[in-house]
C-alpha cells in the first residue's frame, strides 16, 4: 500500500480555550479531491489553518502525517516548502511588495528547501505569464502590492495563480467561492481543474454546493461541530443542498444518528 498524501488521525484542536476540532479523521491520497462541507462555525477553516501551521491553533490530541512525515514537527514555512498550499478565504494585503517580487521570494525559498537552484528572473517571468494566463489574471496586477487594491474576484484568482506558480502536492482551498459571482467562480474552478492530476491532492472547503458543480470532488465529508459526521461520494453534496445541514446534526441523544 502506498503512503497516503495526508493522514489525519483523531485530531483535536483548541483555539483560545475553546475546543474546535474534536477528533477529525481524514485520509487523502494523491490524485483525489476531497470536499469538506459544513455550516458556519463547524471548524472548516480551523482545519485549513491547522494543516497550514498557524500557531494560534493548538493541537491537543491526535496526529497529522503528510507523505509519511509528522506534519506537527514542521513550521508553517517548512510545511509550505514541503508542498502544502492554502488558498486563503481572506488573502491579506502587503503594501509596497509587488506580487511578482513576493512570489519570486516564495518560489526560490521552496527551491532552496528542495536543494534546487534558484530560478533566474527571465525564467521566473516566463512562468508568471504562463500561469497568469491559466486563471485569466491581468499581469499588470502583479506589479502592484500583494493583493493591494485587488477586487474580491481578483484576490481569489490571484490565490489560484499563486497555487499554480508554487506547484504544491496538497492544495487546500478555504471557501474560495465566497464572494465570487458565477463568472469568476467558473474561471477559478477552471484554474483549479487544470491543476488536478495524479501528482496532487485537494481539500476543498466550502459552505455551498455550487462550487462543487465546477470542481467535482471524489469524496465529500460533512463536518459538524468539530467532527466529520458523514462521508460519501459527490452525490452527498446534492443531498446536503436539498436537505440542509440540519439533517446531519446529532439529535443529541447519543443514538449515533446523523
Amino acid at each position: 500500500m502506498t503512503t497516503p498524501l495526508l493522514e489525519i488521525n483523531n485530531l483535536h484542536v483548541n483555539v483560545e480555550g475553546n475546543d474546535i476540532l474534536k477528533g477529525v479523521n481524514l485520509t487523502v491520497n494523491l490524485g483525489e479531491v476531497h470536499s469538506i462541507m459544513g455550516p458556519n462555525g463547524s471548524g472548516k477553516s480551523t482545519l485549513a489553518c491547522v494543516l497550514a501551521g498557524h500557531d494560534a491553533y493548538e493541537v491537543t490530541e491526535g496526529e497529522i502525517y503528510f507523505m509519511g512525515q509528522d506534519l506537527l514537527e514542521l513550521d508553517a514555512d517548512q510545511r509550505a516548502c514541503a508542498g502544502i498550499f492554502l488558498a486563503f478565504q481572506y488573502p491579506v494585503e502587503i503594501p509596497g511588495v509587488s506580487t511578482k517580487f513576493f512570489l519570486k521570494a516564495a518560489v526560490n525559498a521552496m527551491r532552496k528547501y528542495r536543494g534546487e537552484e534558484e530560478l533566474d528572473a527571465m525564467d521566473f517571468l516566463d512562468l508568471v505569464e504562463e500561469k497568469a494566463a491559466s486563471v485569466k489574471l491581468n499581469t499588470d496586477l502583479l506589479d502592484r502590492g500583494v493583493n493591494e487594491g485587488f477586487s474580491g474576484g481578483e484576490k481569489k484568482r490571484a490565490e489560484i495563480f499563486q497555487m499554480a506558480m508554487l506547484n504544491p502536492k496538497l492544495c487546500i482551498l478555504d471557501e474560495t467561492d465566497s464572494g465570487l459571482d458565477i463568472d469568476a467562480l467558473r474561471i477559478v474552478a477552471d484554474g483549479v481543474n487544470k491543476l488536478r492530476g495524479k501528482d496532487r491532492g485537494f481539500v476543498v472547503i466550502t459552505h455551498y454546493q455550487r462550487l462543487l458543480d465546477h470542481i467535482v470532488p471524489d469524496f465529500v465529508h460533512v463536518l459538524i461541530d468539530g467532527q466529520i459526521v458523514k462521508s460519501g461520494g459527490k452525490e452527498l453534496a446534492l443531498v446536503l443542498e436539498e436537505k440542509g445541514y440540519v439533517a446531519f446534526e446529532d439529535c443529541g441523544t447519543g443514538c449515533g444518528c446523523g
Binding site: F102, L103, A109
Partner: peptide, 13 residues
C-alpha cells in the same frame, strides 16, 4: 500576524 502567516504559508521564513 496575518501578514506573517501569509508569507510563511508561501514558504517565506
Amino acid at each position: 500576524e496575518d501578514q506573517l502567516f501569509y508569507c510563511n504559508q508561501r514558504g517565506i521564513s
